[in-house]
């Protein structure tokens, strides 16, 4: 009886002799399936390493397909999160708190603007007689999926190539840089957060503006690499994008140095992963993309 039950209920009615034979066949088929699927899995791992473009396309196709479902599923989460937030604020300080939050966001935005201007200014002063930065356009999108748990730090947003989003664009919130677009599908895109193990952002540190690379390691606090010996960092230093390698607009706020020891310089990002709800995708006026947006409009 256990044998019959083991391979599905239908065999129960067969005569006893056939159970074991059918059982053996089924066992062999299962074993063959297992081994071939394991082989296939290793082949996939190799493909994943060799042909990243193909894999990216597959990922985006799947993401595009499930985005409408995720959009619906994220709705209750947003409502619950709203409800919880409201409960927290229900005390007498509720209104005051809300006002302060609003003012704070506004001020942070202004702070970001001021700091961008300041760093831009100092750069311009150094250059004298410069060309203006290209115009920046932005798209606001909602975060509908948080991918990867502890293994990867990326989120899915509801803007894709139809909104002019393209690979490489910077993704920000009012607080600062959140990450960059790694894959743009038609109606959704994947954002690699600055804390992901694959994230490398050229940054400048402190007022001296020492160049470094901010490398994520899947923890909530990325580290600074290749920091020149002369431009040592100290706790409290602001870290902003440097704009090197044409990756991002210079001066986007990234985070603050929290600890410095012999091995690591640790940065606390201004943007926290869990609070990401709406983000802005910045496009630095790369002509091809702009033309597409205009056509779409």
């Amino acid at each position: 009886m256990p044998d019959a039950e083991r391979y599905g209920g239908t065999i129960v009615k067969q005569p006893t002799g056939q159970i074991s034979r059918l059982g053996t066949v089924k066992y062999l088929v299962q074993r063959f399936a297992f081994l071939s699927l394991i082989g296939l899995t290793f082949a996939l791992m190799l493909i994943g390493k060799a042909d990243t473009i193909l894999v990216e396309r597959a990922r985006m196709a799947v993401s595009d397909a499930v985005t409408p479902i995720l959009r619906v599923m994220a709705e209750p989460a947003a409502v619950i999160s709203q409800f919880v937030t409201n409960l927290h604020e229900l005390a007498a300080i509720r209104e005051q708190n809300a006002d302060l939050r609003e003012a704070n966001t506004l001020l942070l935005e202004w702070q970001a603007v001021a700091q961008t201007l300041e760093s831009e200014n100092s750069q311009l002063r150094g250059l004298l007689g410069t060309v203006n930065d290209p115009e920046t356009r932005s798209v606001t999108a909602r975060v509908v999926a948080d991918y990867g748990g502890a293994f990867a730090q990326s989120v899915l947003i509801t803007a894709g190539s139809r909104n002019g989003v393209a690979k490489g664009q910077a993704v920000t919130t009012a607080e600062g840089l959140a990450g960059r677009i790694t894959q743009a599908g038609y109606r959704s895109s994947r954002v690699l957060l600055i804390t992901d193990i694959n994230s490398r952002i050229p940054v400048s540190v402190g007022e001296a503006g020492g160049r470094a690379i901010l490398s994520g390691d899947n923890s909530s606090r990325p580290k600074l690499n290749y920091l020149g010996a002369k431009s040592a960092a100290a706790p409290g230093d602001r870290v902003v994008t440097s704009g090197d390698a044409g990756a991002f607009l210079p001066g986007l706020p990234v985070g603050r140095v929290v600890s410095v020891d012999e091995k690591n310089v640790v940065v606390e990002p201004f943007v926290s992963r869990g609070r990401l709800q709406y983000v802005e995708v910045l496009d630095f006026g790369l002509t091809g993309i702009l033309a597409e947006i205009d056509r779409a409009d």
């Binding site: 994220a74 975060v143 509908v144 948080d146 502890a150 869990g274």
Partner: peptide, 19 residues
Amino acid sequence: LLFGLTPTYIPGLAQITPM
């Protein structure tokens, strides 16, 4: 699986999403 991907908007929870 899709439920696991849905953002909770609670800080710190995304890192420890159950499998």
